[in-house]
């Protein structure tokens, strides 16, 4: 129900709302791509590629 609520809060008519919505999606997407995903990736440790004495130890 969050999307209809956001749509209702966006200013202007249908076209202004559409532009605002696209901007919001782009902002959320870049936040995920450039900030959240790199952090998540580090936490998951899927990019450990070296052999070392302590690697992979729980």
């Amino acid at each position: 129900m969050i999307y209809p609520w956001i749509w209702g809060k966006l200013p202007g008519g249908r076209y202004v709302k559409t532009v605002c919505a696209v901007l919001l999606v782009a902002a959320a997407g870049s936040l995920l791509w450039y900030v959240v995903f790199p952090l998540v990736d580090l936490l998951l440790g899927l990019d450990e590629v070296t052999v070392e004495p302590s690697a992979g130890q729980p």
């Binding site: 899927l46 990019d47 450990e48 590629v49 070296t50």
Partner: peptide, 15 residues
């Protein structure tokens, strides 16, 4: 050369 194995997982190394 070392890398992770299987792809996108980290419980082995491919050498």
């Amino acid at each position: 050369l070392t890398t992770c194995n299987p792809k996108f997982q980290n419980w082995q190394r491919l050498v």
